[in-house]
Amino acid sequence: MVKLIINGMEVQAEEGWTLLEAIRWVGFDVPTLCYHEGLTPYGACRLCVVEIGKEPRSKLVSSCTYPVEEGLIVRTHSKRVVNARKMIVELMLASSPQSKTVQDLASQLGVQQIRFKVEHEDCLLCGLCVRMCAEQMMAKAIDFAFRGGDRKITTPFDMKSEECRRCGACMYICPACQLRCDGPQAEQDICNACLQITPECLKTYDDVMCYLTTCGACLKQPETKQKETKNNKS
């Protein structure tokens, strides 16, 4: 067993765990995008960064790839970490505003501005599809190609791959392919609709009645119902 300190709390973790596993095991939440429990951690999106060590020598590391170490001091929500995550999400918003995952992250982390030129690059190069294809579907039909700004995910020579079985697992797991919900601001680069919501339950009770990270399920419901009824009519 490895003893480490997460947010001031002493935690016992198993040898070989990653920081993310230990953090989530004790119940803290760290946002992730390129992480998936069923796949090898890759550490591409950098959203899961945490601050380790003591200031001024502390540094940020991606918790999904960093192994637990004896005596390590970990802070999951230090100012430095929170600001870094917000900047990462702002970058993602500017390049892939159509992704629901990214919009949700923006609301969750309170990112309310985009200071970069908005583009529609779609793919975040998180590599979930690449790992899904190789590790779960055993196909190895797609992979990264090129590097730097030219990096992309593709089949060899951008051609139909003989290995591909059209299983669709890559699309299933893609965080950029999942389209945004039809919120009140569906066309805007930042939705932030969830942020505008006052929990319904507070109108009646003194406490919020549920602990979902992004609140609003109860509020959104009537709206969705409205839409559905509209659709049914037409």
Partner: peptide, 30 residues
């Protein structure tokens, strides 16, 4: 393309791996 396919087959490596290496390094030209 043929050369890379031949390498992949002979070395028993997935074609994507060969393609990835061939596009990553600057010295190679497709």
């Amino acid at each position: 393309r043929d050369a890379l396919a031949c390498v992949a087959q002979t070395m028993d490596i997935a074609l994507v791996d060969v393609y990835r290496a061939a596009t990553f390094y600057k010295y190679f030209s497709l």
